[in-house]
Design a protein around this nucleic acid. Structure first.
Ligand SMILES: [Mn+2]
Ligand SMILES: [Mn+2]
Ligand SMILES: [Mn+2]
Ligand SMILES: [Mn+2]
Lengths: 231, 231
DNA sequence: TTAGAAGTTTAAGCATGCTTAAACTTTTTG
DNA sequence: CAAAAAGTTTAAGCATGCTTAAACTTCTAA
């Protein structure tokens, strides 16, 4: 017999709460400041009214700081929980891809729901099977149990590469299933070696060679493809 | 572009609805008649009032027949959906046991939640990896995609065995995690060969030999252990 | 056969999390 | 700098699914 203290930290958050924390965490990393109601609403596909109500509750739980009309900022506990959701999400994606042959462009939607229901016990089993991996199938970093996030140390966005560069794709992020599938068909996927054969003056379109094939990639797309230059 | 018709059959049921259908399906197989409010309430750990309300809704959806004060009987669509939840549950249990080294006595609670969230796509991937298995880690049958349920054709409950019988354990059912773990420690688990070394007149306690070891099993327990007599 | 026990349903209320519409605050712009 | 636009919050309401308490039905046993 053992007594387990249920503190605010041990209590499991609701699915919605987890999705809010994850979304806010990600938004904090791009806007690197306070996050706006509407940005959260867009990310989660709900109305701003819903976000207003929810952040009020999250503020009460001390997961974030909320200044009405100004925005929201995660507190340490909120950051920790947000990272943990991301950890579960990415481990699940990798597991599904590696062990159940689920294509990269399909793992996200499965993970989006399973991230809330796979127990820590199960997550740790997957982690172990996978050999404590650092990156998911899109090259996104997997926070470890303590929230430490690995990095692609020498990587740059493809949009900042120069003509003639030879590099390895290390991350392909923020794309929907359809676009991911298209890129994969073009040969643009994690681990692949590419050569930057040209960059258009006009709009920054990057032309790359992958083996025999050639692809043109818009600036917007290139900002979301990270590569490791090979010297 | 394709048009998908959302009919009552294709629409996903809520978690609660799935649990109700599964519970009622199981209860129909033991009482083989109409199922009572209170039995459902006990199985699901909710009040009878909650069950009353819910079965009214399920009746509207034509998943079951409901006669107030009399009971409930699943209709074909309800049976189909109940079986599908069981299929998902058991495939998940087996997958977790086989591929993630989760012990038999722990797979149930994971499956109890994942059964509602693993997509058909994912379930079919697991099914394939497992080689379209017929039984879960407790020996319970896994309904196939069409709802066909395999059987242990020649199995009998251990409670009906005779002294001297040599048999193989094919199913260990209805036990909680703790009891399952205890039985496993005793060597009473799927696939194991046992010899019935005696049956007590007094209360039907069955004494079995497993290799060098000996165990005494109450009638109640023996009714839930199924064995295949080896001639 | 009938009173009381047992079982079931209805009613009222709560929690979560969403919506739309109205009210309010902040930002932008002429 | 004030009016309009943009963004945010509050208010009211809905859906789901649960609870307890009260009302109702059915079963059982004297
Ligand atoms: Mn993802
Ligand atoms: Mn999610
Ligand atoms: Mn189970
Ligand atoms: Mn369940």
């Amino acid at each position: 017999m053992s007594i387990i203290k249920i503190t605010d930290e041990t209590k499991k958050e609701s699915i919605s709460t987890e999705d809010y924390l994850k979304a806010i965490y990600k938004l904090m990393n791009v806007s690197s400041g306070s996050v706006k109601t509407q940005d959260i609403a867009n990310k989660l596909g709900v109305t701003s009214a819903a976000v207003s109500e929810m952040v009020k509750k999250l503020a009460t739980k001390e997961l974030l700081d909320y200044i009405p009309y100004k925005g929201v900022r995660l507190l340490p506990e909120g950051i920790k929980k947000g990272k943990l959701v991301i950890r579960r999400h990415r481990l699940i994606e990798l597991y599904l891809h590696e062990y159940l042959d689920i294509p990269r462009n399909m793992v996200h939607e499965e993970a989006e729901v399973l991230e809330h229901f796979a127990s820590d016990y199960l997550i740790n089993k997957m982690d172990k099977k996978l050999g404590f991996p650092q990156f998911d199938p899109h090259g996104a970093p997997i926070p470890d149990k303590n929230g430490i996030i690995p990095t692609h140390k020498t990587a740059i966005p493809l949009s900042e590469s120069k003509k003639g560069d030879v590099c390895k794709i290390v991350r392909v992020s923020n794309f929907d299933s359809e676009l991911l599938e298209h890129l994969e068909n073009e040969g643009i996927t994690i681990g692949v070696l590419i050569t930057v054969s040209g960059i258009l003056e006009f709009d920054g379109t990057v032309q790359v060679r992958i083996g025999e094939k050639t692809s043109s990639l818009s600036t917007k797309i290139c900002q979301n493809i990270w590569v490791d230059p090979i010297n």
